[in-house]
C-alpha cells in the first residue's frame, strides 16, 4: 500500500514540476519569434556622432498628432545618397529611398487600431517609461512577435494602461482611449 502511495506522489510531482518548467521556461520561447529590424538603424550614430536631438525625427505634427518614426522621404532629406560607410545605410538608400518605399519598421509598442493613444497627452513622461531605451543603441533590440496574436511582446496591455491611469488620477472611462 505504502509502495503504491509513493508511486502516485512522484509522477504527480514530476508532472507538476515539468509543467512549471515548460510553462515558465519553454512556452515563452516557443510563443515568440525573434525578428530583426529590416534596417540596422543606429540611434547612436545619429545622437552621439551627429548630435541630433530626439525631436528632430520624432516630432509632433501641427495638429498635435505624433509622427512616430520618420518617413523615407524625411530620412532622405539627409540620406538622398549614401553618406557613410555603413552597409545598413547603403541598403536603406538602395532599397527604400531609390525605390520610394516606406521601411516596414517593427514597432515595439504597436497598439491595435481601436486604441487611440495620444502621445501629446503623455509628453510629460519620459519616453522610456513605455518604450525600450533605444536612444543610445547601435543595433535595435530584437523584436519578439507573438506567433498567435501577431503583436509585439512589448505591446502594452489594457490593464497596464488602466493601472497607470488609476495611479495618476486619469480617467479610465472607455472613450478616453476607444473612440
Amino acid at each position: 500500500m505504502a509502495k503504491g502511495k509513493s508511486c502516485v506522489v512522484l509522477p504527480f510531482l514530476i508532472g507538476f514540476v515539468g509543467a512549471l518548467i515548460v510553462g515558465w521556461g519553454l512556452f515563452p520561447k516557443l510563443l515568440y519569434s525573434e525578428k530583426a529590424q529590416p534596417i540596422r538603424f543606429s540611434h547612436k550614430v545619429h545622437v552621439e556622432d551627429q548630435g541630433m536631438a530626439c525631436d528632430e525625427c520624432h516630432t509632433f505634427r501641427e495638429d498635435g498628432s505624433f509622427a512616430g518614426i520618420p518617413t523615407t522621404e524625411e530620412c532622405a532629406e539627409c540620406h538622398a545618397e549614401v553618406m557613410g560607410e555603413d552597409p545598413a545605410e547603403a541598403k536603406f538608400v538602395e532599397e527604400y529611398v531609390n525605390e520610394d518605399r516606406e521601411v516596414p519598421w517593427l514597432i515595439y509598442q504597436k497598439q491595435p487600431d481601436n486604441v487611440f493613444f495620444s502621445h501629446i497627452a503623455h509628453q510629460d513622461f519620459d519616453c522610456t517609461t513605455c518604450h525600450p531605451d533605444v536612444g543610445n543603441s547601435d543595433t535595435p533590440p530584437v523584436y519578439y512577435e507573438n506567433k498567435i496574436s501577431g503583436y509585439s511582446k512589448q505591446t502594452m496591455k489594457m490593464w497596464q494602461c488602466e493601472r497607470c491611469h488609476a495611479q495618476n488620477g486619469a480617467s479610465n472611462a472607455c472613450y478616453v482611449c476607444h473612440k
Binding site: V8, V22, W24, P28
Partner: peptide
C-alpha cells in the same frame, strides 16, 4: 497522476 500533476502545474504557469 503524472498527467494530473502536469495539468495542475500548468494552471500555475502563464
Amino acid at each position: 497522476t503524472f498527467l494530473v500533476g502536469g495539468a495542475v502545474g500548468t494552471l500555475f504557469t502563464p
